[in-house]
Each structure stands twice: as C-alpha cells, then as structure tokens.
C-alpha cells in the first residue's frame, strides 16, 4: 500500500470519535468529589467517636477500602467507574477495586497462583513505585533535614 503510516495515522484520527471530555470531566468531578466528601463525613464521625486525627484518617481509608471492595464483589463498582471514570478510579476506592477485581476474577486459577499471585496485577505497580519514591524522599530527607 503506497501510503505512509503517518498518513494513515491522520486518517485514523479523523475517523475515530473522541471521548466526550467535558461530560466525562463533569462526571469525574461530581463522583470523585462525592467520594471525598463521604470520606470527610466519616472522618468527622470517627473524630466524634474519640479517634485522634491520625487514627481517624486510617479508619477512613480502611472503611472506604471495605466499601469499594464490597461494591466490587457485588459487581457494582465497575458500573460506577464506567460512568465516572477517574472519579471512581483516582480515590483510594479505585485502588481497592484494582486489588479486589483480579482477586475475584482469577480465583478459577486457584488460591495460590490465581488469587494470591494475581491480586496485585493492576495495583502492584502503585505499591512498587510508591515505595521506591518514598525511599528516594527518605534518602534526600536523611541528608537535608
């Protein structure tokens, strides 16, 4: 075919509909904002029950993780994410969904090589690069503090 890949790339771009950015962003904003607001409500609640700031923060994270994984199990979190995109993916609930989804999907391959090995298929990189960058920060901090 006497057409360069670049020319074809231009043709493909023209033929391919774009994502609806504005409407996607509005949905991401509202849903992501609501999840965070709910986190704030939990935070105030744990505070009122006598938990300190740090403890409340941890409890909020654990509660949100629990709820997201429950929603993943009953097959509702992917519906939310389809609607809200990053609004459901970026909060800690999205991380929890990324851990639970492969755990459930790969149970057919067994509890060791399926659930155990595949659990961090998507979220593993978050832990790896989060830990590595925390070490970089720690190293710098050690010398400059």
């Amino acid at each position: 075919m006497n057409m360069s890949k670049k020319e074809y790339g231009e043709m493909v771009k023209k033929a391919s509909p774009n994502s609806r950015l504005v409407s996607n962003c509005v949905k991401a904003f509202v849903v992501g904002g609501l999840i965070c607001t709910f986190g704030q409500v939990l935070y105030a609640m744990f505070g009122a029950l006598g938990a300190g700031r740090e403890m409340s923060g941890t409890l909020v994270a654990v509660s949100l993780i629990f709820l997201a994984i429950l929603a993943t199990g009953i097959g509702k979190y992917d519906d939310l994410a389809k609607f809200a995109g990053a609004g459901a993916g970026v909060p800690i609930t999205g991380f929890a969904n990324a851990v639970a989804a492969p755990a459930i999907e790969f149970k057919k391959e067994g509890y060791v090589m399926g659930v155990g090995a595949k659990m961090f298929l998507i979220a593993g990189p978050v832990i790896v690069y989060g830990t590595l960058s925390s070490m970089v920060v720690g190293l710098i901090y050690y010398f400059v503090r």
Partner: peptide, 11 residues
C-alpha cells in the same frame, strides 16, 4: 478539591 484531582486524572 477531591473532584478537581479526579478531573486531572480524567483529562
């Protein structure tokens, strides 16, 4: 703020 961070991700 939470919504805005998610919008960054969506973009």
């Amino acid at each position: 703020v939470g919504g805005a961070i998610c919008v960054l991700g969506q973009i």
